[in-house]
Each structure stands twice: as structure tokens, then as C-alpha cells.
């Protein structure tokens, strides 16, 4: 059969909630275009109820994910990197279309993203050595501080880097045992929605990562005000929106990471890794 005779098989992009791929509860979609304004696909336009459902799924997954051994979490995240590696061509094409990059440059971005995922996966059983400590105290006690995950973290993915940027904000949140509700880049959500397919086939328990596409402001506002979200990463919010969200997040003392200039290609450091941890200190009596 001639190549041109084949009907094109278009992909229906969907949300990723609790390990499933539903359409938006609202039934809405919006048009996603490439950098030259050509139509790429329809992405679901998630509503605040989808955001609420995502938080419920993330909360449900938190116990199991934070309770898993660091070794196990690392293995699962490494598995995600393996799956990403196998889908390099797909992500290269999506990133090239979304960000207007040449194929070679997009391939470099995808490789950097896979490498970054691996780099963060390695941190799972090492973060306690960096963020924890054995504290000298004036008494017959072992005094140990260890990092614990904050809980459910809402992540507003960066608008300027649809894939490398997304991986750079998502991986550090979940590697330490948090669960995440991600709002994908508003104008370029397709790489994020495809990442969901990778996550779903990588032994990552359903609900650990939930991905929403839609208007960042519409989704971020209920997430920032949500009483059951423990932290919010405002990377993808503009300055004005970020101020509003910080105000909304203050009510239940959410941990907030403010947006700032970021060079996604640079060495990420441990900043994002340590931003969503709480310190637990235990006093343990010394045997005499």
C-alpha cells in the first residue's frame, strides 16, 4: 500500500489521574499548536474538579510511596528513565514541535532530560545523608534528624521548557517520597501528557504523579487554596499570578517554592530536592 493512502491515526491526549487516563471531567479540550501556530492536537482543558480529583489520588498514593524503601523508589524511577530512553524518537518529535527546535537540538534536550531523571533517581537513597544529621546533644541520647517527604506537592511546570523543564521539577519532588499533581506547560502540554504514558508503564504506583493540562491560572488557584495540598512549586506561574497563589497558599501554611529565573540545561544542584522535605528529629536513649 502506498504510504499516502494510509489514514492518519491521531492520538487522543488525556489527563493522567490516579494511574488512569480520563478525559477532563468538564469534557473540554483546547487546541495545541506548534511554534509556528500550526495545529498539533487537542489537549484536555482540565477543570478545578479534575484538580480536586488529582489531589485525592495523590493523597491516596502518598502512604505507599513515602513508605516504600528509598532503594525501591530509586529502582522505579530508574525504570522510568529506561522507558523514556526507548521512546526517545517520540519525545524528540514532540519537543521539536512544541518548542520549535531542530531535530538535533530536540534530541539533545530529550537526552538531557533522560540523564537528569537518572541523576535524580540516584538521589533516592542518598538524600538522607545530605539532609539528615546525627546531632550532638548534652545528654545520654542519640539525636538523629532525618528528612521526610512533605506530602502532596502541586507542581506548576515551567512554561519555557516543556520536557526538560518538566522533568527537572517533577523528578526531585517524587524521588524523596512526595506525591505530585503537575500542571503541564499551558501552551505545550503534549510532552507532559506523553510522559504520563511512560510513568504508567514503569511500575510507578498510580496516583504518585498526576498530570493535568489546561490553563495554569485556572488550575493553580484551587490547588494553592486546597487544604490537603502540603506544598506548591510556583515555577510555571507568572509574577502576578505567583503573588496571588502565595497569598492563597498561606492559609494552611503550605510550603511554597517561589518562581525564579532558571537555566534548565545547567547542573540542577540539590535545591529542588531539598525544597520539599521536612526534618524529623528523634531522641533515642543511649544504652548504659
Amino acid at each position: 500500500m502506498n504510504q499516502s493512502d494510509r489514514l492518519s491515526v491521531l492520538k487522543t491526549y488525556k489527563l493522567y489521574l490516579g494511574g488512569a487516563f480520563p478525559r477532563s471531567e468538564s469534557g473540554r479540550v483546547y487546541e495545541v499548536t506548534d511554534s509556528k501556530n500550526r495545529w498539533l492536537a487537542n489537549a484536555p482543558l482540565a477543570s478545578r474538579k479534575d484538580a480536586r480529583d488529582a489531589v485525592v489520588a495523590a493523597r491516596k498514593a502518598f502512604g505507599g510511596w513515602s513508605g516504600a524503601t528509598a532503594y525501591n523508589r530509586g529502582q522505579i524511577l530508574y525504570r522510568v528513565a529506561e522507558m523514556l530512553e526507548g521512546r526517545r524518537d517520540q519525545f524528540t518529535a514532540e519537543v521539536a514541535a512544541a518548542e520549535g527546535l531542530s531535530k538535533a537540538k530536540a534530541a539533545a534536550v530529550v537526552e538531557a532530560a533522560v540523564d537528569r531523571w537518572v541523576w535524580y533517581a540516584g538521589w533516592s537513597d542518598k538524600v538522607a545523608q545530605i539532609a539528615g544529621s546525627a546531632n550532638p546533644v548534652a545528654g545520654p541520647y542519640f539525636n538523629l534528624s532525618s528528612p521526610e517527604p512533605t506530602g502532596v506537592v502541586a507542581v506548576l511546570a515551567p512554561q519555557d521548557s516543556s520536557f526538560l523543564g518538566l522533568v527537572s521539577v517533577l523528578a526531585p519532588v517524587i524521588v524523596t517520597g512526595n506525591t505530585a499533581v503537575v500542571v503541564a506547560a499551558e501552551d505545550a502540554p503534549l510532552p507532559a501528557l506523553s510522559l504520563a504514558e511512560v510513568l504508567a508503564t514503569s511500575d510507578l504506583p498510580g496516583g504518585v504523579v498526576n498530570i493535568l493540562s489546561g490553563r495554569t491560572a485556572e488550575l493553580a488557584t484551587p490547588l494553592a487554596a486546597h487544604q490537603d495540598v502540603n506544598a506548591i512549586d510556583l515555577t510555571g506561574a507568572g509574577a502576578e499570578l505567583a503573588t496571588d497563589l502565595e497569598r492563597a497558599a498561606a492559609d494552611n501554611l503550605k510550603r511554597v517554592r517561589r518562581p525564579g529565573p532558571a537555566d534548565w540545561a545547567a547542573d540542577p544542584g540539590t535545591d529542588r530536592l531539598l525544597a520539599f522535605l521536612e526534618t524529623k528529629t528523634v531522641w533515642h536513649p543511649m544504652g548504659v
Binding site: 493523597r59 484551587p222 487554596a225 486546597h226 487544604q227 492559609d251
Partner: peptide
């Protein structure tokens, strides 16, 4: 309150 509540409350 206009805010989604959670099981902590």
C-alpha cells in the same frame, strides 16, 4: 470557605 478541604480537618 471556597477552599477544598482535606482529611486533616
Amino acid at each position: 470557605t471556597g477552599r477544598y478541604s482535606g482529611p486533616d480537618y
